[in-house]
Design a binder for these strands. Structure first.
Lengths: 253, 253
DNA sequence: CCCACTTGTATAGTGATATAGACAACTATA
DNA sequence: TATAGTTGTCTATATCACTATACAAGTGGG
């Protein structure tokens, strides 16, 4: 018999036929174990049969929950040894006057890569026009890129470049895989970041797909303008980082 | 192509194979319509076929979501007319010096009822001992009751009575269906509420079952002590109200 | 090497979830 | 009294979610 009072938010039990599948409920509970710190120092999960009896379900149901978390990159299994949390220390992405993807993350991952997913020539909406200091509806080149560290997506960005000044930016990027190199090809050897605004939000469906995130994940959104040495805007961009994998560091120099 | 910026928290689309069944996602969305105020003044839902195409699912799936909400008492369907939100104005439960279930709700529901679910003779823990001003581990009589208005559960309470003074309280309650009447049987013709503390919390699993609530519902928790005319505590109680169905009014007289 | 412990795979059965189409039953209104 | 618009019921099919049982395969330690 329970005679407890206003009890502390006790973990709700697994609920059957609630419209939420058991594997999903268990998966959510396991994911929370990591942050709750009720874990061995080696990040090892209890064996499947034990989790199964703990949650009162079949071992296969636990396996289903685990395999989804493996898919998401939260867990890693080793046959014969156990299941472990992937300890993925966040990459530190410096934001400052010289914000560059590869240079910023250098040394923190063995391979860094920027891929162009999509590009188009479009007309500037007001936001972009203000950022680039051009007329609304002026022609701009739009790129969508994804940044990969060790082959895993960590950021996705949209960039807008003034078309009159940098008509070949998409091709140059495609050839070089880098904004810095592409701009260099087009005669701009240096550029600096003028302003950056940071926000955080829940991942959109697009984010989930592009960054391979789990529903409910958080993304950091950095909106900024790069300018050439003369101070003329050459790139307006919105970059969305997986908050699980990246932390932003502000260089206040 | 989307060129929108940091978009306002857009309603996530219905997600398939997410571990959350479609009917559950739709059911949650419909439930939110009421509070979001995007509803006809008559509280009528769009027809099923329209909801189905809106959510991109089969009509039967919408029907499943709706039937769950009907089960919960959120919706009401009328064949040939439509589906409507049940407007259930909250009952006003007065809390003050003379807090009594039936008298307090009189006139707000056609039938009022208090049923004893469970009782036991146990030892007072510290909380109860302090409330009743007795020794820790002294014998007390514990009752769990449920309050029904129009046959629907609106509150569930645990009460503790000092066993030495009121040994027959459980039987008396069982016979009369009222604390007031039970106490009267045992020679206590009047009592008053000395103190009440109010909190709110998410419904526990017990609450969900006993009050027939939907997961995530809120309960109001009132903890109080009743004393006899001489000021001696005779009842310590914790009452949990469904916040959907009850509002508490404080009499400050 | 053997043994205990772990994850991985296979097979089979049951109930919940979702789709599809057709038609019945009821309501309001022209 | 038709008719359009609505909810209710029925049948059929497919897939997902969960259980049950058994055994294979890898790991680590006595």
């Amino acid at each position: 018999m329970t005679v407890a009072g206003a009890e502390p938010t006790q973990d709700a039990a697994i609920r059957r036929n609630s419209g939420v599948s058991l594997w999903r409920q268990i998966s959510d509970r396991i994911r929370r174990l990591e942050t709750d710190g009720q874990l061995d120092p080696d990040g090892r999960l209890p064996p499947e049969f034990r989790l199964a009896e703990q949650f009162g379900v079949n071992r296969h149901t636990v396996r289903s929950a685990i395999s989804h978390l493996v898919q998401e990159g939260v867990l890693r299994t080793e046959q014969g040894r156990g299941t472990f949390f992937r300890s993925r220390p966040r990459l530190a992405y410096p934001i400052g006057r010289r914000t560059r993807f590869s240079a910023g993350l250098e040394g923190q991952a063995s391979t860094l890569q920027m891929v162009l997913v999509e590009s188009a020539t479009i007309r500037a909406d007001e936001r972009v026009a203000v950022g680039l200091n051009i007329e609304v509806a002026a022609t701009v080149i739009w790129l969508r890129t994804i940044g990969l560290a060790d082959g895993e997506p960590v950021s996705t960005a949209e960039s807008w470049f003034p078309a009159d000044r940098l008509p070949g930016i998409a091709d140059a990027f495609r050839r070089t895989g880098s904004v810095t190199a592409a701009l260099s090809l087009l005669g701009i050897d240096d550029y600096t970041r003028r302003a950056t605004t940071l926000t955080a939000t829940h991942a959109s469906d697009d984010d989930l797909a592009r960054l391979k995130l789990a529903p409910g994940a958080i993304v950091l959104v950095a909106v900024g303008v790069n300018v050439d040495p003369d101070g003329r805007p050459i790139q307006y961009s919105e970059t969305r980082f997986s908050a699980d994998r990246i932390e932003l560091t502000i260089e206040s120099a």
